[in-house]
Write a protein that binds this DNA or RNA. Sequence first.
RNA 1: GGGCGCGUGGCCCAGUCUGGAUAUGGCAACAGCCUCCUAAGCUGUAGAUCGGGGGUUCGAAUCCCCCCGCGCCCGCCA
Length: 552
Amino acid sequence: MLLFDDVYSDMLDSIRKVLPETNSSDLALDKTGRCDYSFRTFRLSKLTGKNLDQISELVSPAIRGLPFVGKIKNESGYLNIFIKDSFFLDSVRRYLDERKQYPDTFQDPERVLVEHTSTNPTGPIHIGRSRNSVIGDSLARILLRYGYRVTTQYYVNDSGKQVAALYRGFEMFHPGETPTVDSLLSGYQKIYSEMQDRQKEKELIDPVIQSYENGDKEVIEKIREYCSIMLAGIMESMLSIGIKIDDYVWESSFLDGGELNQVFESLSDRTEDDGGAKYITLPDGAKVYLRRSNGTSLYFARDIAYHIFKAMNADWVIDVLGEDHKDHARHLSTVLKEYMDYKPRIDFVTYGFMSLEGSKFATRMGNIVTLDDLLARTIEEALKVVKEKRPDMPPEKLADVARNVAISSIRFNIIRVNSVKHVDFRWKEALSFDGDAAPYILYAYARAGSILNRVGSFEKHMSVEYDAEERALAKSMFLYPYFLKESVDSLRPEIIAAYCLDLVKTFNDFYSACQVIGSGVEIEKRVTLITCFRKILRDAGSLIGIKFLEEM
RNA sequence: GGGCGCGUGGCCCAGUCUGGAUAUGGCAACAGCCUCCUAAGCUGUAGAUCGGGGGUUCGAAUCCCCCCGCGCCCGCCA
């Protein structure tokens, strides 16, 4: 829960005291530049039968008494409300001084479990998959900032067909060799081309799955070993862009565990038989298989078991999934909620697929960009740019700047787009550092810092006169909690990305319009604006993984 | 074929949930701004029948219906 001077709620409450019919959409943040908030009198007029002026005469006095409300204008069906100029900065500064952060938070007892990435440990993480990690990590940070107790979890698929293929591929094509990421991947790719027809696939893979589920120690240990090697590489890649997951849960731990039995027991009344295989039929008519005819379990059953496990430590479960899992997620949710009395709130955040320069990702065709490739090339490109812009900078600093710019850019490019949208990855765009991108944010932060470094001592005098640019910057900072809340309510991290861009834009307007050093009676207010701006931008930007720099 | 989602200037994107006062930014293009706190910046110009059609409404990018295009899913894979 967020603690701040919530002017919106205060005004809405006051208005409802005199006009209980008021809907929350009747009072809104102004988008036209006329005022700060506007109240739609025409809507209430229609609803209550009172004319526009009568509504206005009722509402104006109700909010005029609020300490932050300034002018109120009655204009063509709208009541245009102004907040007092100095209120925005005073409010933000008070929180930062007294509570060290704006907004402050109240610890929510709810435990949130964000599962993300969970990519099969059968190869390095590629940029399509990294969208999952970036979204999940940002969401976790945002929820934590909001005041929830958050943990992140990676579900490691070390049972089932994919990893059976990983095992079989390595044993077939690299017998006796020491397993490495490369040799494992090579075996996996080779056996996958063998598995093109399903008959061949059955012959190669079924025996492995069978012995795995029968508890064949050697197979289980080997698979676990190979998966661990692959997973270590994935973890390192994620860490390179600032993502660290709290817990890794191995799917195999549910094979002989009580959760899986619990699943089959709970669903036994609904289970139907198809030649020995077991399935259930959902309300939408979909048949979902739980067991193969040979008795081994299927992903759906194991995923229910996993979610039962999750519920033991969470009040709110959030899964970040590719859009190809949307139906699975819907079905899972139905079974948990309708058939199994699942207690936690559960949400699925799905994201659209990525393509590469207009064509599909195809792992086996080599049409793929790994996260490591992307980071390496982006650092290289960033280095070129910094060298050019800052010939005076020492090499170790150049490298540090290039790395932070690259990490921030990659994460920002991924997170700024609404997750439901498909994204076509283009190198030209990925390596561009102009406009709506991370460097825009980093640069403003560094420039603001530079002013503070140079300003020295100055005369204390908090001016209450505000230029338009000063006011806009203070207002933008003040509005941060609303965006944070909206981001949590909708589970959309891109709202924070958009907020950062908007905040920086108001700063740049201020920067070019208002000289700070040597500005006489304005200086304390302007230094305060910059100090607060840096804290809030850093706060918001960190939620989406931006790594700030003092200098660039 | 059925289900789900997407379609906004040449390109990328916001706004759609909760209908309202001039449809948001950026890239690319063109014209400007460093004797002044970092020009990875700022200012200006040009560029949009909000996929198409119908409907609801005083009012539709936003809600409803139909159609078109694209993506994903429809496995005893995960």
